[in-house]
Amino acid sequence: MSDNECTNKPKKADPWAYTEIVKDHFLNPRNFIMGDETKWQADGEGLVGNPVCGDQMLVKIRVKGNKITNIGWKTYGCASAIASTSALSELAKGKTLEDADRITAKEICNYLGGLPEHKFHCSVLGHQALHKAIQNYKASHDS
């Protein structure tokens, strides 16, 4: 199975078409930056997506000894975009930069118990924002 497929698919025709886990992350997003994101001190940050397609994610990381000690984010988009960035932040926290950089869309999707097909392809972008944030960190901390 490729990284472009999600192993978990919603099982029943929920009117929401979202799993309980997605709903939970949408309503109670983890690690998001409250208030002004520019005031959130970070060692690296990445922004992906654009309002034309309706989704945009900002991911900011704090790094200590090659590990992500803290992660914060903002997301403009639908429930699945918000939930998937929230899920990503939980997956990345505490990981080494190398491990965090290996997080795939598939992992995010599985963590959430699956996403509707059309959502998976357009709204799971958080790992790309994280990748950019890691690169941004590395660029400014290269020896």
Partner: peptide
């Protein structure tokens, strides 16, 4: 505030509406 998110929050609060957001209809 993206429309589908507003729509779903409203739905969870017992209010049913529509949105012009692409996400809600599955369109691009």
């Amino acid at each position: 505030a993206e429309g589908e998110s507003t729509q779903l929050y409203l739905d969870l609060n017992g209010i049913e509406v529509s949105t012009g957001s692409a996400c809600a209809s599955g369109a691009l």
